[in-house]
Design a protein around this nucleic acid. Sequence first.
DNA 1: TCAAAAGTGTTCAATGTACACCCATGC
DNA 2: GCATGGGTGTACATTGAACACTTTTGA
Lengths: 258, 258
Amino acid sequence: MNKQEEVHDFIQNGHKTYLKHLSIDCVIFGYHEHQLKVLLLKSKKSIWSLAGGFIKRDEPLLEAAIRILKERTGLDELFLQQFQTFGEPSRSYRTAEDIKKLSDVAKASISKDHWLLDRTLSIGYYAVTEYSKVTPQADFFSEKCEWWDVDGLPALFFDHHLIATEALKALRTQIYHQPIGFNLLPEKFTLPEIHDLYETILGKKLDRRNFPKKLLSVGIIKKLNEQKKIGAHRSPFLYKFDKRKYDKALKEGIVLAF
Amino acid sequence: MNKQEEVHDFIQNGHKTYLKHLSIDCVIFGYHEHQLKVLLLKSKKSIWSLAGGFIKRDEPLLEAAIRILKERTGLDELFLQQFQTFGEPSRSYRTAEDIKKLSDVAKASISKDHWLLDRTLSIGYYAVTEYSKVTPQADFFSEKCEWWDVDGLPALFFDHHLIATEALKALRTQIYHQPIGFNLLPEKFTLPEIHDLYETILGKKLDRRNFPKKLLSVGIIKKLNEQKKIGAHRSPFLYKFDKRKYDKALKEGIVLAF
DNA sequence: TCAAAAGTGTTCAATGTACACCCATGC
DNA sequence: GCATGGGTGTACATTGAACACTTTTGA
């Protein structure tokens, strides 16, 4: 199927594949060079939106989120977290006009009870990734797929601005209580690297000398006897996560104060 | 409509009123005399379950949760919190047999595509209430409605045991970051009363002298110049919440350590 | 030898934790 | 006067926060 056929098929037959009234929206955060970004999509005739999708009739919820994420980023094994379900009735009213923008299906063929006109609740997930790992890939709906600075998002579809804001809040709360970094950093990483990750996500400066104390004392990261060559400067030591303690902290929660 | 007719109508016509594939389950926690309980319902031919319900086609999600809660407890203005959405496909498969148990509708009238046989995702909310304020009230499905000790729940419907466990985890996490007590305690309450509330929810002893320090230093509670007569013992002072600071802490979050 | 980045430890302040004796009340 | 429950403060330990100079590296 070519792209146009795919869209057409989705509009005509999606209701046979997907659950009604429900969608998933993923807020995909990417960090890079001290910038926190969100991956947004845009279709030709429409506005920017989060990476979203529907849940297949027999698909586990988490698998659907992973699938949607993979369709957008090509990555799995990201840090992925359900954080809130959005259910205002007004959040999602589409018009036949909106659907027509998706493809050149004759407007007449969109009946009043078309499945895409239904009220939709959306289950919000957020993900975090190192953004150079991701090749933004527009899917069959979308023309563009780009990273936007979290502090400068454009006008967004529906309530996606609210979803993005809540996701950021949830991520920043979470980072004080769960370790983060596995799958976001290389297997062996330096203190400046992980320090940067935390500063970027929290959007604030963290003292360079105090920062690693808690992670080390909890045992989540371990210093290795190796250094990384970084060119014209002093070689930083490499560290790695202690997966056992990391997972324990993930499960039981920790209290960090930065 | 009498009860039997209501059930019948719900089974036959519910799909016109409610959203497909979606439900809400409320884990209603009640505390009383240092015991933390959960309100459970049981229908005649079935098993114990959480207080659940469906979302009306144009009803905001939160309103639906409030409505379901009110149907069960007669109370509104409870501490009510969305915490997770459950979406395993296997979580909710009913059989025509299950539906028949709800009423004496002829089994033959339950077609294979009956709306109650659909896969259902459930949005989990929890609530907390002082349990003497609640008159457990069986609804039109249920025969019994009782408080069960959180540590001794019976076998539960579907994945309701998981939902209850996750709710308790969420409540216990939340209580370290948001104030709780408003609408759960009388307008004026004593330190022993609020101390008891926290001990009951957390399921552990908290030092009587250290406990109020943080709440006082953050200004969430204020000491009044009045005492409560409690009979044969020394009269404890009354306190009340500073609603402005309470709400601020609710919104911005706090860090408590007990 | 210089510029850029990374390594490292101490002091002080705030917070958390442990702990026990006296007081009020009603019977 | 006694049993019960409530009121209260201090000392110590832990944690967090602030802060600057030295070392390494390659150009």
